[in-house]
Design a protein around this nucleic acid. Sequence first.
DNA 1: CGCATCTTTGAGACTGCTCAATACAGGTGG
DNA 2: CCACCTGTATTGAGCAGTCTCAAAGATGCG
Lengths: 236, 236
Amino acid sequence: MSSIHPAIVAQHSSAPLPQPWLERAWSAGSAPRSEDLIELIRSSGQTARLERDEMLFCEGDDGEALYVILSGTVRCCKVLADGRRQIIGFYQAGDLLGLSLGDVYFYSAEAVTPVRLRRLGRVQLETMMDERPQLRRRLFSIAAGELAAAQNQMLLLGRKTARERICTFLLGRAGSDGAVELPMSRTDIADYLGLTIETVSRTLSQLRSAGLVRMSGLSSLELTDPDRLSDMAEAA
Amino acid sequence: MSSIHPAIVAQHSSAPLPQPWLERAWSAGSAPRSEDLIELIRSSGQTARLERDEMLFCEGDDGEALYVILSGTVRCCKVLADGRRQIIGFYQAGDLLGLSLGDVYFYSAEAVTPVRLRRLGRVQLETMMDERPQLRRRLFSIAAGELAAAQNQMLLLGRKTARERICTFLLGRAGSDGAVELPMSRTDIADYLGLTIETVSRTLSQLRSAGLVRMSGLSSLELTDPDRLSDMAEAA
DNA sequence: CGCATCTTTGAGACTGCTCAATACAGGTGG
DNA sequence: CCACCTGTATTGAGCAGTCTCAAAGATGCG
C-alpha cells in the first residue's frame, strides 16, 4: 500500500499556468485564485515527475506533502474491494493535490499524462501558513472550492442522467472557445461520472449525431452548441 | 472489511454531545475532534432556533456565518431546476454548518427536527482564527474531514448498489450498541443516497427479512448483524 | 375518531449495464 | 511506407436493477 515515489529533481522552470479546473467548476467561487500562492509553493518545493499511469501517492499513505501541478493531468480515485473505481477529480496545471492534509491521503493520485509537479512538505507548509495569513486564507478558500466541487459532483452522481452527466462534464472542461481536451481515457471518464465506458461512448455519439459536438480524434472535441448543451446539462 | 468500531466517546460532563457525523464517516480522521472549538464558538455566538423544515440558509445566500449545532438534525441539500434534490449531508449536535465560507453558501440548510444552534459571524470567526493557531488547525482539519466524507459519498453514489448504499448509511449512523436513529424521512434518506423512497423502503424491508436489522418504529432500528451488514456495504 | 401524510408493497417500464463483436488508433517491425 | 498487432473505442442485443405509477397500509395530529 505504499506509493511509488517519483524521482525528485531539483529544477526550475516557468511554464504558463492554465486556469485551474476548480475555477471553472466552481462558478460561485470567491476571489480569483491568485498566482502568488502557487508561485510560493513552486519556489520552495522540489520538482518531481511522473510517467503515464504512475502513482504519486496511494489511499492510506501518510499525507506528508502538498503538490502543485506544473503540467500534465492527474486523476484522484478511490477503489472498492472488488475493483469498482470512482474518480474523485482530474487535476491540472496550477491545481493543488493532497490538500486534505489529515494523517493520511483519502484517495490515490495517478498520472493521466506525464506530469511535472512541485512538492511541499507538510511541516514546511504549516510553517508557511502560520507566518502568512494571506496564504492561509487562500488555502482555506481553495479547500472550500474543492468542497463545493465535490458537492456538485454528488449532485451529478446522485441525480443526473447519463446525458446530463456527460454534458456537465464537457461544459466544465470547455475553454472559452468551446474546445475540449480529453487527455484521459473513456474508462477514466466513466469512472468519474459513475457510468460505464459503453454509456459514455454511446452518449458522446448521440451528442455528435445531434450536432452538439464535433469530434476531432479521440481526445479532443469542440462544443458547437454550448447553449443547448447547457440546457441538457441540468434538465432532461 | 468488517466492523466499524466507534470505540472512543468518553463521558462528557455537561451537555451530552453525540458523536459528530464526521467522526464516524471519516475513519481515517486525524485527532478526535476536541470540544474546545465548539465550546469557544458556543460561548461567543448567538443562539438561534429552527422549527421542523425551517430553512437556516439557502444556496446562494451570502455566507456570513458559521453555525454550531447544539441539538437536532439539519440536512444540507442542492436542488436542480426541475426539483430533483441531492442531500449533501446530515448534521447533528456538535457539527459545524457553513464551513465553506466562500462568498456564498453552496447549498441550503434545513431543519430535519427542531434545532438549536449558535451562530458566529464571519468576521468574528476570522479574527478568532488569526489569533488562535490551534483553532485554525482544527477548523482546517474539520474541513478536510468534510472533504473526505464528500469523497466517500461520491464513491457511494457513483459505484455502489442500492443495498450497499443503505448498509453503508446504516453503519455510518449506528452507535456502538448497534442502535440507529433516523430522524429524517424516507424521502430525505433517498435524496441522500441517490435513490427513490420506494427503493429505500424495499431495501430496508429486505434487510429486515434477512434478519440483519430489527425495526422498532419508523425512525429507529437496530443492527442485529453488523459484520454481515458491513460486508454488504462494500461488496454485493 | 377522522383525515392528511408518510411508508410499504406491487406490477410494469425504462435507463443504463453486461456481454459480445466490430472498428479504430497507435506503435512496431518488415 | 505499409502490414501487422495490441489495446482502446464504438456499436449492437439482451438483461437487470432501479424507477415510475398505483394502491393499500401505518402513523400521527387535530
